[in-house]
Design a protein around this nucleic acid. Structure first.
Lengths: 245, 245
DNA sequence: CAGTGGTCTAGACCACTTC
DNA sequence: AAGTGGTCTAGACCACTGC
């Protein structure tokens, strides 16, 4: 209310506080992915603010893809099970046209001790146990993507090769369904490299053929890094797409 | 007002119409990049709507980086001369750390007839005249980027090598200052390829060394494609960064 | 102090969904 | 018809800038 002094209490507008509380509820799992959250008027009553203020908080959360509005129905927690969300994290497209549906081939799923470069990224203890998944993805019978995926064993205790092979759909949807983990954001670092022996074999390329090397770190609520991937894309007939604005 | 029928007039909310009118003014050059636009109340009076409606229109334009709000000062037309905007279209970062400032080396600037693959992308007539620019960018003395840039001669009539070499700052700022062209958006398609003779020479690499090949098409107001680039990035000590959300 | 954008409210009405 | 999000308004007040 006061705070005329030199910004002692780091003033933040009401709708930002509401947004923070909504985020806390999402993180705590009060509303699960795919579920409706209470209506704007209910939330306004709960937080004792006007509907317009709740609305502005929800506006920002929908802009970040954490919530999805559906007129007449309500506001829903975003989920990777949703049709529209399937391609949110896939930037690969065939040179001719639209998005591509890739076929999964899981090669392995093993426990391992986390190497240093992963512990740093995932902010876990040195030597903590990880699950390492190897996957190849094909399009029209041709291997396009080979990736290694690392997850903390603690959170993904029961994950195994059989589960993966039985799963149809995006990995992130599996994480939601089975491990109560919703991915919110990812950061990628991309390089062009000469394929090493393993990548060349998996992608049926000549040793040294140029491939895209994509390092991805995915974050759940609260900026928590949960998954790290090292992906190799074969880009002779497809490319990585990006829009700058 | 009516429109109970099966959507004859493609109803659009007031603030969308305001947004369209603001866009038209931007495109027509009524307010130049870097200038203030009229205050929300002035615009509300002009369009005979409430200030809140204008506000919502401006909200969307700022979200698209077309306008920039500055509390207490006004709302400004976005410009590539702005400090903050310098790195908007540069996704290259050194493996260690933050954004990198690259040094320009313009190699050539020549007129040429547009090949088919460019006429399609830039939507110009077959055989129309283009300007082709070749540029190398260095960081800490090392060549990092080699690119070819194509612009329609019509719009960029007076552009020449001397002008380019005298220019300090982003190309897009030059386009604004001298050619009344503001770039709004760009789309990139990225591949890993083996460097050809020309690229290898420009980047001091061995022939065949893997490089990132980035095709970029940049758009001005009204989704008008204006510039096409083919860039090669050397990514042994830096990478292309991207955030997915 | 006046002018700008930023927040917040309260209420009216529209558009879409569901029963 | 009732409930949801979506639009629009009018007015009050806050925060920042510059004269």
């Amino acid at each position: 209310m006061s705070a005329n002094l030199t910004a002692l209490a780091t003033f933040s507008p009401l709708y930002q506080q509401i947004k923070a509380m909504l985020l806390a509820s999402l993180q705590a799992g009060e509303w699960q992915p795919g579920e409706v959250i209470p209506s704007e008027f209910e939330l306004a009553a709960r937080y004792e603010v006007s509907q317009g203020t709740v609305r502005k908080a929800i506006d920002e959360l929908t802009a970040q893809n954490l919530l999805i509005r559906k007129q007449g129905k309500g506001t829903f927690v975003a989920t990777h099970h949703e049709e529209r969300q399937q391609f949110r994290f896939l930037r690969l497209a065939p040179d001719g046209g639209q998005a591509m549906v890739l076929k999964n081939h899981f090669l392995s799923c093993k426990k391992m001790k986390a190497p240093a470069f992963i512990t740093q990224v995932l902010k876990i203890k040195a030597g903590e146990s990880l699950i390492e998944i190897e996957r190849v993805q094909t399009f029209a019978g041709k291997a396009i993507v080979f990736e290694q995926i690392w997850l903390p064993s603690l959170r993904f205790k029961t994950l195994n090769l059989a589960t993966l092979q039985a799963w149809a759909g995006p990995l992130y949807a599996l994480y939601e369904s089975t491990f109560a983990t919703h991915m919110v954001r990812a950061e990628e670092k991309i390089k062009a490299v000469a394929s090493d022996a393993m990548s060349a074999e998996r992608l049926n390329l000549q040793l040294g053929a140029p491939i895209l090397l994509v390092e991805r770190v995915s974050y759940s609520y609260g900026n928590k890094p949960v998954e790290m991937r090292l992906a190799r894309y074969e880009t002779s007939t497809q490319h990585y797409e990006n829009t700058l604005s």
